[in-house]
Design a protein around this nucleic acid. Structure first.
Length: 558
RNA sequence: GCGCCUGUAGCUCAGCUGGAUAGAGCAGCGGACUUCUAAUCCGCAGGUCGGGUGUUCGAAUCACCCCAGGCGCGCCA
């Protein structure tokens, strides 16, 4: 609806330019919004205000000119009014609202789809946990964010690929192997030393048992045994990660391994390129890259004195590789503790001529877990943490995903296990799901009374005239532009708010019928019932589509 | 010390990239089930948008300066 109105505005402006009612000037950024105050109509625009300075006329004057020359050929508008200090308030023709209902019911699962992405190839990289331990809640939050973002971007016409980057080449996996080996040795010799920065979780002992049952560590040299523990441990952890994510309904298109970067020679290519661009220099035996030329605080080492490459080195080639694979844009979802890393990656990419907005990094803040009114402190190294799997097993995928998306990724999240475990009204995910189940229940009731959805509702829908009904229509009509906004701002959490708001409006509407039987959806008036069922069906579709984008089930009964 | 993030109702947070009278959930108080599902709804109460200065028709939103909290500043990953 908003885009239709925008089309009217654009042709109005063009018309005013052509006829000389307004001077032909550049059109600045303006907004069309749904006003808080219903007296201000269904939509309002600030276009005259933004146009004032370039036109050198008062906003009120410009607004009047536009209203007098509206190019509304499809009769979209019921009226348009000038409002101080220079807004135009619009009321949409009721027929056009009813038309949206028909669109929704016809399009079903496709309603809300749009082409704003223009098939642009986007790579979304998320989770990317080291295969050194189980996924924790921070990974889960990143997974929920990334997965929903991908679903929404695809829905908005982007060509999306999902990638998990496996950090399997560095010190951390070696530490995993040493930790496992040490636990293995401790089975017979409790005094065997444990590595200083080793992983302490119970899962390490489990790994030691599994691996020693599979290969004969006793017959190997210590180094061979550690290598074996590293290799096997990494593989098992990766497999568990894959299972956890599958259980969490998060699929990936690519599992990209860091060690492949080394073996494929990509790293050398990258160095060669940088050398040609004169971005490298040696100092004190190490190899440096001049990121400070591109906005970083200081230059960074990419090959250490001991000849080993830094993590940063592989990350540069990894990102170059992303572009080489044809992605016009990359989105990374990282833990907030990596934020200091962004300037140097962007600097390295700038050095290769990438534009500033080729890479977007979304930072996910911490998840704090509460139980019995107490915060559960977590530390991966100390092996003291609640895993994503444990949480999902305890409260369910739907609830975890929903709660993870109730807040902006930028702000820390408190997750109250007791609250979410309660399968009752305190739990926000049920509120939305219940609205869906309730509508399904109404349809069962209608069916039992022999009333069904009208095939051709055109004449009936004008009977939907209650304020609550019109408000609901306006909310669901806003679904497509909400998704466009989300895909532009990369803020999926707005969808949970939208669905909660829609569910609230529906529950309110439903409750009218508990007081006044005439306001029930299934009433004695058959055509009235059909019109309302049509509305209910449209609402159900939007809730189902929204939940689908969140990766949450839409139950028919609760 | 430098950088990033956060600061909105008692608590947890939204606030549509600068719009008109700042919203929701929870907690508190008072109401609504012989009913299409009460996993719901209605009402009441609750605010110096951390503080200040500025930008302009207009600021929770933008800029600058303070205050408070979190995180990051390795030839670690």
């Amino acid at each position: 609806m908003k885009s239709k109105l925008n089309a009217v505005l654009k042709s109005t402006i063009d018309h005013c330019f052509e006829c000389g009612f307004l001077n032909k000037t550049h059109i600045p950024d303006y907004v069309i919004e749904v006003p808080n105050n219903p007296d201000h109509g269904h939509f309002a625009t600030n276009l005259p205000l933004t146009l004032a300075s370039s036109q050198k006329r008062s906003p009120m004057e410009i607004a009047s000119v536009m209203v007098d020359n509206l190019m509304d050929e499809e009769n979209l508008l019921e009226n348009a009014e000038v409002a101080a200090p220079g807004f135009i308030n619009f009321r949409i023709n009721p027929d056009k609202w009813y038309g949206i209902l028909s669109d929704i019911v016809r399009l079903k699962g496709d309603y809300g789809q749009n082409r704003t992405g223009n098939n642009q190839k986007v790579l979304v990289e998320f989770v990317s946990a080291n295969p050194t331990g189980p996924l924790h809640l921070g990974h889960g939050r990143g997974a929920a964010l990334g997965d929903t973002l991908c679903r929404i971007l695809s829905f908005c016409g982007y060509d999306v690929a999902r990638e998990f980057y496996i950090n399997d080449a560095g010190q951390q996996t070696k530490m995993l192997g040493e930790s496992i080996f040490s636990r293995f040795m401790q089975m017979n010799n409790p005094d065997f030393p444990f590595p200083e920065n080793g992983y302490h979780g119970d899962y390490i002992l489990d790994l030691a048992k599994t691996i020693s049952g599979k290969v004969n560590l006793n017959e190997m040299s210590e180094q061979e045994a550690i290598d074996s523990c590293t290799r096997e441990g990494k593989e098992i952890m990766l497999e568990e990660t894959k299972q956890d994510l599958a259980q969490f309904r998060v699929p990936f298109d690519f599992w990209y391994s860091e060690s492949d970067l080394f073996s494929s020679g990509l790293l050398e290519d990258t160095l060669e390129k940088l050398k040609r661009k004169k971005q490298l220099y040696e100092n004190e035996g190490a190899l440096w890259i001049k990121t400070s030329d591109f906005g970083d605080d200081k230059d960074r080492v990419i090959r250490k004195k001991d000849g080993e490459f830094t993590y940063f080195a592989s990350d540069i080639s990894y990102h170059l590789e992303k572009q080489k694979r044809g992605f016009a844009r990359a989105i990374n979802i990282w833990g907030a503790d990596h934020h200091g890393y962004i300037p140097r990656v962007k600097a390295a990419l700038s050095a290769h001529g990438f534009s500033e907005n080729w890479l977007s990094v979304l930072l996910v803040q911490l998840v704090k877990l509460w139980r019995d009114g107490q915060e559960i402190k977590m530390s991966k190294r100390a092996g003291d943490f609640v895993t994503l799997r444990e949480l999902v097993d305890e409260v369910g995928v739907d609830a975890v995903r929903f709660i993870f998306l109730t807040k902006n990724h930028d702000s820390p999240l408190d997750f109250d296990i007791d609250l979410v475990k309660k399968q009752d009204s305190d739990n926000p995910v049920y509120y939305v799901q219940y609205a869906h189940a309730r509508i399904c229940s109404i349809f069962r009731k209608a069916n039992s009374e022999g009333i069904s959805l009208p095939e051709k509702p055109d004449g009936l829908l004008k009977r939907l005239a209650l304020d609550e009904e019109m408000a609901l229509i306006r909310i669901i009509a806003g679904f497509p532009s909400l998704l466009e906004d989300i895909s532009g701002a990369l803020e999926p959490h707005r969808l949970t708010y939208y669905l909660t708001d829609l569910a609230a409006s529906f529950h309110r509407y439903f409750n009218l019928g508990t007081k006044v039987p005439d306001y029930r959806i299934v009433t004695n008036d058959r055509t009235m019932s059909q019109a309302r069922l049509f509305l209910a069906q449209a609402i159900r579709i939007v809730i189902a589509n929204g939940l689908e984008l969140l990766g949450i089930s839409a139950p028919e009964r609760m």
